[in-house]
């Protein structure tokens, strides 16, 4: 979708047209998830371990075909949360797979929690819902 309208301003600079570009669908969805593992400090997890557990979760619920979906682990924060990027058409399935994952390969109980989901990565930079925590 693309339409062009002439800008109706009278600036000293030559009048530039105002162009408008729109994207109908976003190809990715970004999820901020936290992971808690029984009797373990999940803040010590590194990126590879985190990614391995995400892939395990996907393999359990969605099988080998589902686990082949390209999931990118963009950032691991120190407190056991991370940002992952998933293709938007398989978001529900991956979200469900993360939610249903209950125990690590070593037999410890664990849980993924999706804290924030957004089609824009910038949307995850701030969460306006935890103000009370931020101020106190």
């Amino acid at each position: 979708m693309k339409c062009t309208t002439a800008a109706e301003n009278s600036n000293p600079v030559p009048v530039k047209p105002t162009n408008f570009y729109a994207e109908k669908t976003q190809s990715y969805v970004y999820l901020k998830t936290s992971l808690t593992i029984e009797d373990e400090n999940s803040s010590e997890l590194n990126g590879n371990q985190y990614k391995f557990l995400i892939l395990q979760a996907m393999k359990e619920t969605l099988g080998q075909v589902g686990a082949a979906t390209p999931v990118d682990l963009l950032k691991v924060f120190g407190d056991g949360t991370c940002i992952i990027r998933v293709p938007s058409r398989s978001t529900e399935k991956i979200w469900a797979a993360l939610t249903l994952y209950g125990s690590t390969p070593s037999g410890k109980r664990c849980a993924f929690r999706v804290i924030h989901a957004s089609p824009f990565l910038l949307g995850l930079a701030f969460n306006s819902r935890n103000h009370r925590d931020a101020t106190s």
Partner: peptide
Amino acid sequence: SLLDSHGDFG
């Protein structure tokens, strides 16, 4: 085979 390739969901 279904369980292996498409998991619990499939």
